[in-house]
Design a protein around this nucleic acid. Structure first.
Lengths: 108, 108
DNA sequence: CAAGATATCTCGGCTCACGATATATTGGAG
DNA sequence: CTCCAATATATCGTGAGCCGAGATATCTTG
């Protein structure tokens, strides 16, 4: 799973959101560190929908603007949880080795 | 930073290793879950060397086979630590939202 | 009235992953 | 003694996917 896909699933884990809302939510949940370009978003969304990890929730017209809401499916929640576990294992491995390195610094 | 790059830096955090040794180490540190294809490895290694995150440590000839060892540089260790922090924040955000979802499950 | 925020989506270029391929040595199985 | 697997290097081409740029439309604010 790619990182943009991971972030989209995360943004949808709380509640159903529309495209632009996902962009805002990703920015918010990363404290402004990550911005999701819309050119990335819609490709990711299509792919995730094709894999059944997200699905169309509803369509609304709010103040003349169409809002297309997506929601996380159960397989999507499982996939996100599995990916989170995988990443956590990677992070743990890196952190352990970095700690060992600080104790006994390299020559470089 | 791409995931293969992250894993290569992690493999080198402990001690200097040669290409094939990195492949083995990545497999080992992920408990066999991740296998790093050599076609991926050498591209990543070149890129990381170009960015100054790893550098050539030494070359040895062991039993007629050339071994080219790479080591993590200090900027490489910093980059790895920064990326680990970033990933950890992503994982935390996903885990929190998934927990909230389990408490109050979605319709999908 | 213009500009910026909100909202959708497409397209093309660039980067990167990785399977396949090439080459060479050592060690073990048959 | 021959063949295959493992060890070791490296390159190349395809395909996937990220994302900047652009197209389109409405509402709000100055």
């Amino acid at each position: 799973m790619t990182e943009p896909a991971f972030l989209v699933l995360t943004a949808l884990a709380g509640e159903a959101r529309h495209g632009y809302g996902i962009v805002s939510e990703v920015e918010r949940l990363s404290d402004g560190r990550v911005s999701m370009p819309v050119g990335t978003l819609y490709g990711v969304l299509d792919r995730l929908a094709g894999e059944g990890l997200v699905e169309l929730d509803r369509e609304e017209v709010q103040q003349g603007r169409l809002r297309r809401y997506y929601r996380l499916t159960d397989p999507g929640a499982e996939a996100l949880a599995a990916e989170a576990r995988r990443l956590e294992a990677n992070v743990r491995a890196a952190t352990e080795r970095l700690r060992a390195r600080r104790t006994r610094p390299a020559t470089a």
